[in-house]
Simulated scan of single mutants.
Amino acid sequence: MRPGWNPARRNRHVGTKAHGHGANNRLTIPESWHELKCYFEKLSSYVVVTKSIGERELKFFVEPTRSDWFYPCTVDDICAVLSHCSVNVLNSFDFVVMRQPTRKQRILCPVWGRAIFSFDIDKHRGAAIVIEAQDLAPIDWDKSITPEYTRELERLRKDGHEIRNVRRGIQIHTTPNSLRNTVLYRTFLHEIGHHIDYSQSSSEEWDAKTKPVKEDYAHRYASELYGLLSKQGVLPFKPIIDDKSLLADGLNREWFCLS
């Protein structure tokens, strides 16, 4: 090696992402090494509501929303849908969680809802459907989207969202009604589909299924269940606004979009 030669000066990647620059301050959702719970299982505060649907008692864990955020459907809306579903559907999960995501979670992992097969909360453990609070801020997508995202964009358009092509990509503009269509009539039924698929599969069969296969099943199940309930005249229906029910359950009307 020549005296005084500094190889770092000859490295074109110094100070760039390829050389590790910025790796320590990358935006991530914080997780604790000392706790096994995922971030979506950690509710800061919540109200526990127990509802009777047929012969089944179902618990709801409802987290208060921040200002300008809301749940696109009420607890009574969800119960109204489930009251027309089969026993098989009601037995496929144990409780419903309605949670308020943080701003960082919304940026890094935006979702309408989740199907969780092992959810641990308030000394309860079981299968859960998670519904996330939403706001009316536009949702930005990149211009280069996969075929699956293209199909999802068409589903969102049918839900009533306005899809705009902007300079940097695609922008999805929502309304309270379009969010209700997406969350109550599609996402909630979609997550039920995941639970049905999981309950009918062995551990080996479930692990062998790819994500696209699981998603296709849940989309198909949601579409068929909506079609069945629609033919029966059950769906769609107006938001169930029951101030007495909200008060009795300890819920705040402002947490829900009732318009």
Rank of each mutant, 00 (worst) to 15 (best):
F61K: 05
Q200R: 15
I121L: 15
S92G: 08
A218K: 05
G20A: 12
I121Q: 01
A8F: 00
P239I: 11
W141C: 11
K37T: 10
P239H: 03
L153F: 04
R253Y: 13
V81I: 15
T65G: 05
A18Y: 15
F60A: 04
C73S: 07
R155Y: 06
D249Y: 10
F256W: 01
C38Y: 08
R114L: 14
G4A: 07
V111L: 12
A128C: 14
R167M: 03
C85P: 09
H219N: 12
D207I: 11
K59L: 06
P147E: 06
G15P: 09
C257D: 12
R167N: 00
L90A: 12
T210Y: 00
A133S: 14
R56Y: 13
D77E: 11
K59D: 00
R66L: 09
N24C: 01
R155W: 13
G227W: 05
D197F: 09
R103C: 02
L156N: 04
P101W: 02
E205L: 14
W255H: 09
N252P: 02
W33E: 10
E55G: 14
T16P: 11
N91K: 12
L189M: 14
D76E: 12
W33F: 09
Q100F: 00
S223C: 04
C79Q: 09
G160C: 08
K59P: 03
E55L: 10
P72Q: 02
I170S: 08
Q171S: 14
Y217M: 07
A218S: 14
S92T: 07
A8H: 09
L82D: 13
I145R: 02
P101K: 04
S203I: 15
R168I: 01
L235F: 09
L156Q: 08
V97N: 04
G233L: 10
F188M: 08
V166L: 05
Y71V: 04
P101D: 01
S245G: 11
I192K: 05
S223R: 09
S44V: 09
V62K: 07
N165I: 06
S86M: 12
E224H: 02
H13M: 13
L189R: 02
D249T: 13
E148S: 13
K17P: 07
S118W: 10
N181F: 03
D159W: 04
M98E: 03
L225S: 08
L228N: 03
W141G: 11
M1T: 03
W206V: 00
S45V: 14
D243P: 08
D159I: 03
D159F: 04
A218Y: 00
E204M: 09
I139L: 13
N25Y: 00
P239L: 07
R220P: 04
E35I: 07
S86N: 13
I78H: 01
T150K: 14
W69V: 02
H161T: 07
M1R: 10
H124A: 07
R180S: 07
R151M: 10
W69A: 00
A115N: 05
H173S: 10
L247D: 12
H21M: 14
G193S: 10
A208W: 11
Y149A: 08
S86L: 11
G227P: 01
V49G: 02
C85R: 06
I29Y: 11
V183L: 05
H219K: 08
L184D: 04
D135Y: 05
L229A: 10
A127R: 15
Y226I: 08
S199W: 07
N252T: 14
C85N: 12
I145G: 07
H190C: 10
A127L: 09
R155F: 03
P64S: 05
G15Q: 06
L258D: 06
K123Y: 00
